[in-house]
Design a protein around this nucleic acid. Structure first.
Lengths: 221, 221
DNA sequence: AAACTATTTTAGGCATACCTAAAAATAGTT
DNA sequence: AACTATTTTTAGGTATGCCTAAAATAGTTT
C-alpha cells in the first residue's frame, strides 16, 4: 500500500523522465535523477517491479504501471503544494523551497494533503510555474515552450522555468524577471543565439541562449 | 550534526521519560515508548552514546547529555508547532494530529521551524496544552496538576491533558470539556474517587478518577 | 549467602538501500 | 560478422535498525 521514501523518490524520478521526453528512462538516467549508482537502481527496479509499480525487463528499460504512476503523481502533488505553502504562507523565496519540499512530499496522510490544498485555495501551479496535479491525479497544464523558441517581434508571458536550481532562480531574481512577466523578443543574435528582450514593456534585458532555454513561456502572439 | 528519524525518536522518548518522573529511564521504558524491543534499544543506546548524545553505562540506565537534550527539545518544539499548524490553520481536530506531527517533527530545516513559529504567532502551547519550547529550548510551563488532586469546593482552569490518545480526546469532546474551561469540584466519592464537577458554571458532569487523573489544571483557588 | 526473578545485554540473523568490481548484454562501428 | 565501447546487471559487501534466543547482571527473597 505505502512506499518507502526511497521508493517514492524513484517513482517520482521515473515519472519526470517519462514526462520530459528529453531523456529516455534508462537506468543511468534514473541513477542521475536520484543521485545514486546504476547498480543501486537495478536493485530498486526489481523491487518496484515486484510491487507492480513499474513494468521492467532486464536491459529494456522501465515504464510506470497505472498504480506506479498514481503514486508518483501523488508525490509530485504533495511536493508542489508544500512549495506553495512555503512561498505564499511562510514567505520563503522560490529558490529556497526545493530541499524542504523534498522532505515534506513524503509525509503520509491523505487528509493532510487535502486540507493543505483547501487551505492554499486549490492552487493550480507551484511557485516555479509547474502545474499541481489535482486530487485525482489530473494535471491541467497550459502549453509551455522555451523562450529560445520565440520568434523575433513576438510576445509571450513567462509561466515557468526549466531549470529549478537555486543558482538560476537567483539569477532571475537579480535580473528582476519573474513568472507572469510579459516578454517581447526584440532581437536575436544568430551567432550565439543570445537575445534582447523587453520585459513588461519597461526593461530591456540581454540574455544568453542558455538562459532563454530555461525560461518557459505561454500564450505567444 | 544531524540525526536519523530513529535517533530523534529515541532522544525524544528519553527526554519525555526524564521529564515525566513517573517512570524511570529504563531500557524497557524506552522500548515501550518507541514501540520496539529491549534488545533494539540497547543497540541504539550504544550508538547514541558513541555520538555523545546520551551518557550510558551497561545495566545502569541513561541520561541525556546537553547536546542530546538540545536535539530532543528541538524535536519536541517542531512536533508541537506542527500540531498548532494542523489544528489552527488546517482545522484538524485535536485528536487527529498526533501521527501527522510525528512525521513532520523530523523535517530538517531551521529556517522552516523559525518561519513556521512566526507564521503561527509564536504560540506558547500546543492544542493539548503542552508548552512549546522556544528557539533556545527554553520551556515556560505553568504549573499543572491532575484534576484528581483538586480539593472539594475549589476551582481551577483546565490547561492540559495527561493522556494524548484519540480515544480520551474524543471522550472529552463528547462531554464538551476543553482547554480553558473553568472547573469547580462539587463533590467527590470516597469509594472510587469519582467526582462531580461544574464546568464553566453551566454544566454539571460526573467523571471517574481515571478521567480526572488525565485532565490537567492550573490556577487552583 | 544462595536462589530465584526480572531486566538488560550479547550473539547471530534479516531487510533495506546503498556501494565497488566484475561479468553480461546491447549498441555502434568498421 | 567481428570488434569495441557503453550500458546494465550480477555478485559480494557495508551500515542501519530491527528481530529472537540465550547469556549476563541486578535486585529481591528466603
Amino acid at each position: 500500500m505505502s512506499q518507502t521514501h526511497s521508493e517514492e523518490n524513484y517513482l517520482k524520478a521515473i515519472w519526470k523522465l517519462v514526462e520530459n521526453p528529453g531523456e529516455n528512462v534508462s537506468t543511468n538516467a534514473i541513477a542521475a535523477a536520484v543521485n545514486t549508482k546504476a547498480a543501486s537502481v537495478t536493485d530498486m527496479l526489481k523491487k518496484l517491479a515486484d510491487k507492480k509499480l513499474i513494468s521492467y525487463e532486464r536491459y529494456k528499460g522501465v515504464t510506470l504501471t497505472a498504480k506506479g504512476k498514481r503514486f508518483a503523481v501523488e508525490v509530485v502533488r504533495k511536493h508542489r503544494l508544500w512549495e506553495v505553502f512555503l512561498v505564499d504562507q511562510l514567505k520563503f523565496k522560490w529558490d529556497e523551497v526545493h530541499d524542504i519540499a523534498e522532505q515534506l512530499e513524503h509525509i503520509q496522510s491523505n487528509a493532510l494533503t487535502e486540507k493543505l490544498d483547501k487551505f492554499l485555495g486549490f492552487p493550480k501551479v507551484d511557485p516555479h510555474g509547474d502545474p499541481i496535479p489535482d486530487k485525482d491525479g489530473k494535471i491541467s497544464g497550459q502549453h509551455q515552450v522555451p523562450l529560445s523558441q520565440l520568434e523575433t517581434g513576438k510576445k509571450a508571458i513567462m509561466t515557468g522555468v526549466a531549470d529549478h536550481s537555486a543558482l538560476f532562480l537567483q539569477f532571475l531574481d537579480k535580473k528582476e524577471i519573474k513568472l507572469g512577466d510579459a516578454i517581447e523578443l526584440k532581437e536575436k543574435t544568430d551567432y550565439d543565439h543570445s537575445m534582447v528582450i523587453l520585459v513588461n514593456k519597461k526593461k530591456t534585458i540581454q540574455i544568453s541562449n542558455e538562459v532563454a532555454k530555461n525560461i518557459l513561456i505561454s500564450g505567444m502572439k
